[in-house]
Computed example of a mutant assay.
Amino acid sequence: MTTTDQSSASVTRPRQAVSAVRRRELAAFLRSRRERISPEQVGLVRGRRRRTPGLRREEVAQLSAVGVTWYTWLEQARDIQVSVQVLDALARALLLDPTERAHLFRLAGATDPTPATVCPSVTPALRALLERIEPFPACLQNSRYDILAHNRTYGLLLCDLEAVPPEDRNCMILSYTHAEWQSSIVHLEEAQRLMAARFRTAMAGHLAEPAWKMLLKRLRDQSPAFREAWERHEVVAHRGKRKEFHNRHVGRLFLDHTDLWLGPENGPRLVTYAPADDDTRRRLDALHALALERRPVAQE
């Protein structure tokens, strides 16, 4: 064996050892999460002869839409590839909370494709700024249109955003699949077309990233309108413009949209909506008052 071969082997062995440790930890973690869930929690019948604590392996495989043999190998710490789509399905089937989900993806050496409920870029200062902007609606978004944080007025602008699961709080998903959100946008078809074009522009720098590919697949699978817009291959840059909404609580709103970028690149941004006329300003005040009744300011 040459010196080069020896050096290469000395690097490979520690990596293999780390990978084996991760697989064992992942297997143990999956077993522990499986055993703590009762069949009733996931809509399954317990049966009289059940001896397994929690769920059986085949039940987890069924709930996750993966093969039983493949899932068994995963719990046996075998050296197999795990896609982010399968990890996402397992996290949902095993009812993982955000911390457990993040742990699952770290053990698998993968990047979680869904937006986190708490993002490192959302600092306490930015949350305070969102509150101080009220009654103007405002939110923090990333370049993928995930809504990372929002103030109370924005939470009632297009729908009851608090009722939307965190993993679905994405403006692309909501604009193409959420009925109430869509009904609040007066010029919906134009808005959808522009968003698809902006999304294509932004995605050019993220073509190989799982989170972007999964969002694109979901939009294509769930929305014929998105598929049609996407096939136009239109691209446009972000720019401020006047938008018209019909809010179910206070009526017609004319708002000037502005993006305030939080870095040198078009990544996270503060999205604000300022009233374009006095009637809209009064209606925003009313919407803010309603939002305060539903979600009061947290006490220190």
Rank of each mutant, 00 (worst) to 15 (best):
T2G: 15
T3K: 06
T3E: 15
T3L: 11
T4G: 09
A9V: 02
T12C: 09
Q16S: 13
Q16H: 13
A17T: 08
R23L: 11
E25G: 04
L26V: 09
A28S: 12
F29V: 03
F29Q: 01
R31T: 14
S32Y: 02
R34W: 01
E35G: 12
V45H: 06
V45G: 00
R50Y: 03
R51E: 05
P53A: 07
L55G: 02
R56P: 05
E59P: 04
A61E: 05
Q62V: 00
S64I: 01
A65D: 07
G67A: 04
G67M: 05
V68I: 15
T72R: 00
T72M: 00
W73P: 03
L74E: 05
E75S: 05
E75Y: 03
Q76T: 06
R78W: 07
D79M: 07
Q81R: 14
Q81A: 15
Q81K: 12
V82D: 02
S83C: 10
V84H: 11
L87Q: 03
L90H: 13
R92K: 08
L96Y: 08
T99A: 15
R101D: 01
A102M: 13
H103R: 11
L104N: 13
R106D: 15
L107D: 12
G109N: 11
P115M: 12
P115N: 12
T117A: 07
T123A: 02
P124A: 11
A128D: 13
I133Q: 07
P135Y: 06
P137K: 06
C139R: 04
C139F: 02
L140S: 10
S143W: 14
Y145F: 15
I147A: 04
I147F: 05
L148F: 05
A149Y: 06
H150R: 13
N151E: 02
N151A: 01
G155T: 04
L156D: 05
D160T: 05
E162V: 00
E162C: 00
V164H: 03
V164Q: 04
E167F: 08
D168I: 04
M172F: 03
Y176L: 10
H178L: 09
W181K: 07
I185E: 15
I185K: 10
E190K: 08
E190Q: 12
R198F: 05
F199S: 10
M203D: 01
G205P: 10
G205C: 13
H206N: 09
H206T: 05
M214C: 10
L215N: 08
L215H: 07
L215T: 06
L216W: 13
K217W: 02
L219Q: 15
Q222V: 00
Q222R: 04
Q222C: 04
R227Q: 07
W230C: 02
H233N: 10
V236C: 14
K241C: 02
K241S: 03
K243A: 09
E244C: 12
F245P: 01
R248L: 14
R248E: 15
D256I: 10
T258E: 14
D259A: 08
D259M: 08
L262R: 05
G263M: 03
G263L: 01
G263I: 00
R269W: 11
V271Y: 06
A274W: 14
P275T: 05
D279L: 13
R281Q: 09
R281C: 04
R282G: 09
R283W: 08
H288R: 04
L290K: 11
A291Q: 00
A291D: 00
V297P: 00
A298G: 04
A298S: 09
A298F: 02
